[in-house]
Computed example of a mutant assay.
Amino acid sequence: METSEKTDIREQDDIRRLIDAFYTLVRQDELLGPVFAARIPDGHWPTHLDTMTRFWTAALLGQAAGYRGNPGAKHMYLPIEKAHFTRWLALFSQTVDALFAGENAAEMKVRALKMGEMFQAKIASARANGGLSIL
């Protein structure tokens, strides 16, 4: 039986592979799938996957990938709670661990955790302030 050793995340193609695998799980998930389905029509998924690949390429690898956007603002008014973030992070970490191992893989999981915590705090603050965003 042939075994393949996991490598670290090194380039945009690695991130694309991770993003594709991760969002396949997200779309099938009972909790997260409906949230995404309500916001991203089927024909728009290639664009979303490209955007997420560019975001993570810039965030993790520090490479200019053409990402422009405000991810916090995109999440501000979604019908999401702590359980959604917990599930998102679990699926994200599971996908990273299934495909990669190394410093960048570990760093990507740390950054995802910090991002989730920041989004949750900003969403809670906006909700407490009558829907006024601090982003």
Rank of each mutant, 00 (worst) to 15 (best):
T3V: 12
T3D: 02
K6R: 11
I9Q: 09
E11K: 10
Q12S: 14
D14I: 08
D14R: 10
I15M: 12
L18I: 04
D20H: 11
F22Q: 07
F22V: 07
Y23D: 13
T24I: 10
L25S: 09
L25W: 00
Q28I: 06
L31I: 12
G33E: 08
P34A: 07
P34V: 06
V35H: 01
A38S: 14
I40T: 13
D42S: 12
W45Y: 04
T47A: 14
T51N: 00
M52F: 00
M52P: 01
M52E: 01
T53F: 07
W56N: 02
A58S: 10
L60H: 05
L60R: 06
L61Q: 01
L61F: 03
L61C: 04
A64W: 00
A65Y: 03
G66I: 12
R68G: 10
M76W: 00
M76H: 10
P79S: 08
E81R: 04
K82A: 13
F92P: 07
D97M: 03
E103L: 07
E103R: 14
N104S: 06
E107Q: 15
M108D: 02
L113S: 07
K114R: 15
K114Y: 00
M115L: 10
G116Q: 09
E117Q: 15
Q120V: 03
R127M: 04
N129Q: 14
L132K: 15
